[in-house]
C-alpha cells in the first residue's frame, strides 16, 4: 500500500510533466483553431527542442539561454517547413482530413528516423538551469527545475493570452478560427496565418521540451508519448480551448503520477489512454465545457 508521502511526491512531479502536456495540447489547439487540421506530429517539437538544445550545449558549447533560443527558432522553422511542404499542398487540394492526419504521422516517423541517424538513439539529459536544490518541504522534495517549468509555462501562457487578445495578428488568427472564409474576405491572409500557427505551436512544444528535459531525459522516441498525452490534454479541455488544454494537461499529469504509484511505471501510458477513451465517450466536448468559450 503506497503511503501518502509517496503519493504527494508523485503529484508534485506529475504537475510538472502535466504542464508540458498542457503546452503541447495548446499547440494542437493553435493549429486546429486556425485551420481545422490536427497535426499528429506535435510531439516531435518537444523531442526536437530537447535534443537540439542538448546538441547545441554539448557539441557547440553554447551557453544555455542561447542554446534554448536557437533550438526554439530552429524547431519553429521546422514547423513552418512541415506546413509548407506537407500540410499546405494537401490543404489546397482539399484532401480529406484523415489523409492529412496520416501525412503528419508519416512526418513524425520520418523526423524520428532522421534524428536517430544524425544524433544517435541514446537517451540524454543536461543539468538543471540553476544549480542546487532540491527544495525540501518536510518529507517532500521539489526539484529546482520544476520551478523553471512552472514559471516558464506560466509566462508562455500569459504571453499567448496577450497575443491572442491584444495584438492585431493574434486577433486575426482567432478570426480565422471562427470563420476562415469571412476572415479572408476581410483581407486577412489566411494562408500566412496557418504558417504562423505552425511556427507558434512548434515553438511552444520546443520550449516545453527544453524546460522538462533536465527533470527526466530526452531521446528520439519521446515524441510519441508527449504528442499523444498532449492530445489527451486537449481532449480533456474540449478540443480547441487553450485554457482547457492547459488544465487538462495538469490533470492528466497528476492522474498519471497517481497511476504510476498505484500500478507501476509501466502502466503510465495505458492509464492516460484509458482516461482519453473515457473522456471521449463520456464528455465528447471536454470535461469543463459548460463554463467557457473558445479561446
Amino acid at each position: 500500500m503506497p503511503d501518502l508521502i509517496q503519493l504527494a511526491q508523485a503529484l508534485v512531479n506529475g504537475v510538472g510533466v502535466g504542464l508540458v502536456y498542457g503546452l503541447v495540447g495548446i499547440g494542437f489547439c493553435v493549429i486546429y483553431n486556425a485551420s481545422g487540421i490536427v497535426n499528429f506530429a506535435q510531439g516531435v517539437f518537444v523531442m526536437l527542442g530537447g535534443m537540439l538544445a542538448h546538441t547545441l550545449l554539448t557539441r557547440a558549447g553554447l551557453p544555455m539561454p542561447v542554446a534554448a533560443v536557437l533550438a526554439t527558432v530552429i524547431v519553429a522553422a521546422i514547423g513552418v517547413a512541415i506546413q509548407l511542404l506537407v500540410v499546405s499542398p494537401m490543404w489546397q487540394r482539399g484532401t480529406s482530413m484523415f489523409a492529412i492526419i496520416l501525412a503528419t504521422l508519416a512526418v513524425q516517423i520520418m523526423i524520428e528516423r532522421i534524428t536517430i541517424l544524425s544524433l544517435g538513439d541514446q537517451p540524454r539529459t543536461y543539468d538543471n538551469f540553476t544549480p542546487g536544490g532540491p527544495l525540501r518541504l518536510g518529507p517532500i522534495t521539489i526539484d529546482y527545475q520544476l520551478f523553471w517549468v512552472l514559471g516558464g509555462g506560466a509566462l508562455m501562457v500569459a504571453a499567448l493570452w496577450l497575443f491572442f487578445t491584444r495584438t492585431r495578428i493574434g486577433r486575426a488568427l482567432r478570426a480565422c478560427s471562427q470563420n476562415a472564409e469571412a476572415a479572408a474576405l476581410l483581407g486577412i491572409p489566411v494562408g500566412r496565418m496557418l504558417l504562423l500557427s505552425f511556427a507558434l505551436s512548434a515553438a511552444l512544444g520546443s520550449a516545453a521540451g527544453i524546460l522538462i528535459t533536465p527533470t527526466q531525459y530526452t531521446a528520439y522516441s519521446i515524441d510519441g508519448p508527449f504528442g499523444v498525452n498532449g492530445f489527451i490534454a486537449a481532449i480533456i479541455g474540449g478540443f480547441g480551448s487553450a485554457p482547457g488544454a492547459l488544465a487538462g494537461g495538469i490533470l492528466l499529469g497528476a492522474a498519471q503520477a497517481v497511476a504510476v504509484v498505484l500500478f507501476g511505471a509501466g502502466y503510465r501510458n495505458v492509464a492516460a489512454l484509458v482516461i482519453m477513451l473515457l473522456v471521449l465517450l463520456l464528455f465528447p466536448s471536454g470535461v469543463f465545457n459548460a463554463t467557457r468559450s473558445k479561446a
Binding site: F40, I235, G266
Partner: peptide, 17 residues
C-alpha cells in the same frame, strides 16, 4: 473525424503497451 482517428490510434498504443 480526428476523435475517431485518435481513439483508434490509442487502441493500437494500448495493445502495444
Amino acid at each position: 473525424g480526428h476523435y475517431l482517428a485518435m481513439a483508434t490510434f490509442a487502441l493500437g498504443l494500448i495493445v502495444y503497451e
